[in-house]
Amino acid sequence: MHQSEFLNVVMPFKDKLYRLAKRLLVSREEAEDATQEVLLKLWSKNDSIGTYKNVEAFAMTMTKNFCLDRLKSKQAGNLKLVHSNYQEKGSLLDKQIEAKDSINWVQKIIEELPEQQKLVLQLRDVEEYDFDEIGEMLAMQPTAIRVALSRARKTIREKLAQKHSYGIG
């Protein structure tokens, strides 16, 4: 397979890989590196790419594994402390700012979720995969996915409600 052919295969889902990596690794730079690394790995396997029935699902699984490995390694642990993509908001009472703040808050809540729930939420709500595809990517049963997804969504709802009733986190 030539590079251009490979790029045609990879282009439609490279953003999905990146978003998944960013969901797990939080930092933008780390996620970019991870995406690059996964695509390089995929490229090095390009002889056998035709034999995978679903390259996209395979790439997503690779990304998931790569990121979880990164998180386990000490190196990533150090980086995690350095990077924080949150923005501190002042005490502006503008409603628009408040709405934006709430959206950032959702991101914080998702970051605190267990990794599996993060993965499921990302794959379902952001990437809109159905349960069978997610099952293939994460090697999970559909019922387990449903439970994880439901828990993740409910946790976000509860924490958001808390924030709204207390005003601040």
Binding site: K22, I103, V126, R153
Partner: peptide
Amino acid sequence: QYAPMFQYVTNAKEERYTK
């Protein structure tokens, strides 16, 4: 109160790998 959840997801879809 539910709006931020869905707006967040809508925003999250927009992120692109630009490198």
